[in-house]
Amino acid sequence: MMEHLADEKLVALCLQGQKEAYNILVVRYQSRIYSLAYRLGGDYDEARDLAQEAFIRIYQELPQFDASRKFFPWMYRVARNTCINYLQKRSRVVPVEEDIDDLTGMAVRNPDYNPEQSFEKSTVANQVREAILSMPEKYAMPVMLKYLEGLSYQEIGKALDLPQSTVETRLFRGRQILQKKLSDLRITKF
């Protein structure tokens, strides 16, 4: 029964050709990676594509995984980078009209839909997403683990293999960076 095996052991089995071991890793972390993709991508369709690409990339990168380190932070980092790379490329080609179409579609599906309110909400969400995307990884990771997964300092430290004091400092710095970026983006709350 592989379900109870540690991540690192499952990776070793994957590298021996046991694909079912990777299935367990996918099931184990799909919520986390999907949530990450949703927050970075902005909608459910995008999240599905992004998360799938992330898991494919993680699978491809498994030979590069250092077995002496923890799997989760490495996996999370690969997933985040895959999402960011994808979104950076896409942002150069996706026309603005796509967002407008999306809002129109929402209005058709939901009669109570308030375009202005929704647009403001969507704008804030987009700006937060942009701010997170442009943050240095070492600050973004603790912030995402804190807010996306509600982990404590200790849990974040364990996940990222960092001392608790470092986690605290990076969260502090991460919030400061976000505050500055969101101020620059002229979010009305600031």
Binding site: S31, V124, R129, M144, L148, L178
Partner: peptide, 9 residues
């Protein structure tokens, strides 16, 4: 803002 925006999906 982050608490509003970040929820597990």
């Amino acid at each position: 803002l982050l608490k509003e925006q970040f929820t597990l999906v």
